[in-house]
Design a protein around this nucleic acid. Sequence first.
DNA 1: TCTGGGGTCCTAGGACCC
DNA 2: TCTGGGGTCCTAGGACCC
Length: 423
Amino acid sequence: MGRVIFHIDVNSAFLSWEAVYRLYHLGGTLDLRTVPSAVGGDQEKRHGIILAKSNPSRKYGIRTGETVLEAKQKCPDLILVPPNYSLYDRSSKALMKILRDYTDRIELYSIDEAFLDMTGCSREPEKTAHEIRNRVREELGFTVNVGVSCNKLLAKMASDFTKPDRVHTLWPREIPDKMWPLPVGDLFYVGHASKRKLYDLGIHTIGQLAAMEPKYLRAVMKSHGILIWQYAHGLDDSPVVTEPPLQKGYGNSLTTPRDVTEPWLAKQFLLSLAETVSARLRADGAKAGVVSISIRDYNLVFTGHQMMLRTPTDLTVEIHEAACRLFDELWTGLPIRHLGIHTGAVSRDGVRQYEMFEKVDYDKQRKAEEAVDALRKRYGADSVMRACFLESRTEPGRPWIDHMGGGISREKRTVDYTRENVL
DNA sequence: TCTGGGGTCCTAGGACCC
DNA sequence: TCTGGGGTCCTAGGACCC
């Protein structure tokens, strides 16, 4: 007996959730979904890309990922709203709660997508799919597409057919009719680079890809060639994974409001990033054995540098120290647009190996950072702040570093808990 | 055209070991 | 001075997803 897999996909998730919020929680009268509108980042802070768009804005050729500026040029009347991640989190949880009424074999694929393993359910799959679709619309106010098939790949391809508020099947026998005529770039895991390679080979549709000799694809595209060839035939036996796998790494990165040319300022941004990364490590009881940084310069050229730590750590100070060393080794002096810290080689054994000559007293430092974590959890991220951030905030001519504190007031409590480690 | 931020996996090359 | 082959670890970079 074959499997039955659903893929649930929220239509224009960020935008729909904002639209519903404005209608039902703020009592607004305009439904953003009915006019050209989009969720986009703040241009002032150089975060200006389109994250989600309404259906009517499709007519203007607005695409997800393009700059807010481009979108505005295409449609001057475009209504832009800022992202609201806590709203998305709540909306996602409400959706998942409904889905759990149908099965507990759910894989949360992303904030707005899930796979359901419906194998063995007595009801007809399409009927259940329509019930889910209707319930989400009626109870939550936004719409979903449901893709129905026998594996995750086909279910996902199916949910991407016509939108919104639709159920589509893509059973294996339907592949030639429903999937093979599609442009090859629509296939899962055929991104920009693969698409270009395939076009160079004269492959424009999924059907043409399916007709290729897999050995040939392997020669051109390595193992990825085999993967997408299998996908073009609808082959996928990956299971619906209920338990989220342990995270392999923790990272934070940011586009600075303006290009950074001074090392001290770059290192201050790195401190801010080290704080959030290490707080997440501590919250998960994890330690990182590798620290890496990335720099994107004003020409948008990406570079990275990494190092192994002698001892895995979850301390802000140690991750920051490593990041600064890497920065000094990597930075060529070009103005910086984007900075990132990523950690890897994560261990979760809960013990700290002590070195012969510890630079910092781990236990003492760990307690201090833990105390700050607790305060921030209770009173908000801005409740505790390093003195260096306060000072730089008030330094004349640098008001733009503001965002690092999220706009704190000077009256708020500040604890400089690692004076000696501040730059 | 002037591109955010969070991840995962794969590959190639160099260092090093036997 | 020149020379093999196999294996592991580390790093850089690319590709993909949302």
